[in-house]
Write a protein that binds this DNA or RNA. Sequence first.
DNA 1: CGGGAGATTGACTGATCTCAACCCGGGTGG
DNA 2: CCACCCGGGTTGAGATCAGTCAATCTCCCG
Lengths: 234, 234
Amino acid sequence: MKNPIPPSARECFNDSSCIFSHLSPDELTMIPIDQDPDFYRRGSVIYTEGSRIRGFYCIVSGIIKIYKTGFDGKEQIIRFAKKGDIMGFRSTITHEPACTTAQALEDAYIFFVHGDLVLEFVKENGDFALELLQIACKELGEANDYITDIAQKTVRERLAEIIIHLLNEFNLDQENYLKITLTREELANIVGTATESVIRLLSEFKQDGLIELKGRKIKILDEKTLVRIANLNN
Amino acid sequence: MKNPIPPSARECFNDSSCIFSHLSPDELTMIPIDQDPDFYRRGSVIYTEGSRIRGFYCIVSGIIKIYKTGFDGKEQIIRFAKKGDIMGFRSTITHEPACTTAQALEDAYIFFVHGDLVLEFVKENGDFALELLQIACKELGEANDYITDIAQKTVRERLAEIIIHLLNEFNLDQENYLKITLTREELANIVGTATESVIRLLSEFKQDGLIELKGRKIKILDEKTLVRIANLNN
DNA sequence: CGGGAGATTGACTGATCTCAACCCGGGTGG
DNA sequence: CCACCCGGGTTGAGATCAGTCAATCTCCCG
């Protein structure tokens, strides 16, 4: 095992970006927060579309891809989750089976909080409820944008947009490459296109001096032009 | 004015499908519920993308289309709202400007509830908060489905799906036509395609005996085949 | 009767998808 | 140590779905 020292969930829960930072000290004691989070090796699945979810998964470290499987088995990546994000709240709240699958893109530590506990927090702690509502509403707004983009923009525009989006969400590593690395197929499954189209467009962007490619790593050379190609207003 | 007797908001608020039915009697008294709801003539806009929203709009009667305007000015219809539904909660909760425009498809009565009040209910009334969360989560699940559909299905499949969806959401009138009537352009703006494509596919469906058309009204003759065309699992 | 919005149809175009071949690097087993 | 395999990445050619443009039609309304 690569990482013999699991990161602390407590530290994660204290960060203001984490929903659980809005719990009262009393409420926090109800969570076995000093237990180690669960470890998921790169590639392993946290939960599967159609399964019952019994609580919140809070990401302590790592990156998770969350996707739906379409009619013909093709993945559609809906979003990514990273440190401080929660997964599975939709199903927990609605008591429906999961509508997505969550899979670790890199080794990850995830802390599970039981649903009964969460529902109690929602009912008893207005701040927590409001915070959770805000998370849901934020995702909803993003989903609406996504719908409009996929419906109206060309593949080229969407790919440029996704690159910018990944930059904003995951930033750069020490060498100025995007910190998240995806296969061409995964990129295609975000953009909603064929793998070959992504490959062709990426090399086009490279030709035009907008990006640099090193295997799966992407370096952004000309953010401004990418933004223009993407027709981003925001 | 067509309808001289505005429908009662109180009646709407009592219906269990309405979020405000989860308020306590005390809380209900904080809302001027016996005032007449606002009237919006067919075609008029309730709020516009980018504007500040100061509370919840609760539909008492009528049908509203909620859409985003894409880069080139093309509408993308995100959803419809009808009696008992609420609009504007995303912006109210997140304090962001509206990300959609809401426009009345038919004459409508809408009751406005001030945001401060709603936020107070969320904080003080756990059931209300949970109910609101469920609404947001339901929409989120639908949005995710929508994303996958638009990204992966053909226009033909999506059009069939939308017809079935409109059937489930709005049912039939006395003559077995879909109760909601949309222009071809609006249909195109749901499906995410060109008006002409919708027209061609509709007449194809008609040729194949799946639907019957009478102006803007659509009668479904062969739901089963439409469902099959749409590749619906649910 | 004229005007305008929406609906329809045809012809054309082109962005993307599909299919198929091939490459490349890493890991494995003999 | 080498041949092989396999997953991902690339490239090319051809097919096609669906978008655009333009002309025409049909109502409906003032």
